[in-house]
């Protein structure tokens, strides 16, 4: 998977493309870890995310927990098939989806 990152000051936009699954989630996790210290506004642009597994959900959850302490996190452009998974797992009520 490719992950586009745009860092402007303390605002980070992350746009993973393709599948966020067991294999690719560690990649997102390490990309986030690299920048998290300085970030206060975290945006996930999921326009090109086609699939998410529990491993991907766990990465989003731990990012959410980290941001709860020091800023905000929002998800944008969530496709219906990803939204379906957020709803099945109850993540739609934990995450801020715009």
């Amino acid at each position: 998977m490719t992950i586009q990152k745009t860092l402007q000051g303390s605002a980070l936009t992350v746009a993973p493309e393709g599948r966020l699954d067991t294999i690719t989630s560690p990649q997102l996790e390490s990309e986030l870890r690299a920048d998290m210290n300085s970030v206060t506004d975290l945006v996930f642009d999921l326009a090109n995310l086609t699939y998410i597994s529990s491993a991907g959900l766990r990465v989003l959850l731990s990012a959410q927990k980290a941001m709860n302490k020091k800023g905000t996190m929002v998800l944008r452009n969530v496709k219906p098939e990803i939204m379906e998974i957020f709803e099945i797992t109850g993540f739609s009520s934990i995450l801020t989806i715009e």
């Binding site: 599948r19 699954d21 067991t22 699939y51 597994s53 529990s54 491993a55």
Partner: peptide, 13 residues
Amino acid sequence: PVLCDELLYPVLK
């Protein structure tokens, strides 16, 4: 894919 990610991988790995 759900089967692969949510069952096979967690048990085999």
